[in-house]
Design a protein around this nucleic acid. Structure first.
Lengths: 120, 120
DNA sequence: AATCGTTATATCTTTATGGATATAACGATT
DNA sequence: AATCGTTATATCCATAAAGATATAACGATT
């Protein structure tokens, strides 16, 4: 008897969030990936946060946390200048993004496979 | 270049918690499995919670949530009686426990494999 | 020097979560 | 009926997390 038959709701599924952590501090996860993607698109922490509906404070803390844990920063920020400043993703940042994206895809594949097993 | 070389801390690893969810309410996860294991061992929500260092309130909410989402309850409770009452795991509860345990093992295997990949 | 949008940071408030506490209901045993 | 340990439930409080707001520093451009 499939597990899904034990439940009232038909929307049964598996859920998990995958994070790279060091010493129990979160280092990289889905939220941070999305943030970096928005920073790359906008060149600004501020704009990225707004587009995501995230507070600047939270975005800045994420970036600070990542940069502090990394040997070389993943994001370089600049204050002042004609455009007021901005942020760019470093090569290291791009490498992490790519690594996590690929890892996350394998992870999702695993979850989807197991989710199907719930109802058979 | 392995991803772990980007980080100061040598304790880099992957972390994820796997949950069965329905309509975004948590239904079953590692905490609830552990709770059911303690209930099975003690026959009491109260004792199980104490042994886990969990408040009775939290334990009860978990049980209530599970039972409400399931077609047939996973835990049956009884109040009163010579021993004051108690709780037992139903057959359905045992099936979920077994299913989740096996699933979780596959999940952990995946994570361990990918964790090793971090440093090569 | 004045402007501008951004980064950087502090402070205050709000909200959510969990813990602690208290108490009633229960029912087999005595 | 009195006892006992448990379930069931409400209320209050403490702590933490998130949001809102304010402001200074910055530096290229004008």
């Amino acid at each position: 008897m499939p597990i899904s038959d034990f439940f009232k709701s038909p929307h049964l599924r598996l859920k998990a969030t995958l994070r790279i952590v060091g010493e129990d501090l979160p280092f990289f996860g889905p939220g941070r990936l999305q943030l970096l993607e928005h920073i790359e698109a906008t060149g600004s922490i501020n704009q990225a946060a707004k587009n995501m509906g995230m507070s600047y404070k939270k975005a800045w803390k994420m970036i600070s946390s990542m940069n502090e844990q990394a040997v070389k920063p993943l994001i370089i920020t600049q204050t002042g200048g004609s455009s007021g400043g901005g942020a760019i993703i470093t090569d290291e940042g791009h490498e992490i993004m790519q690594y996590y994206q690929a890892l996350h895809k394998r992870f999702e594949t695993f979850l989807e496979l197991e989710s199907k097993n719930l109802s058979l």
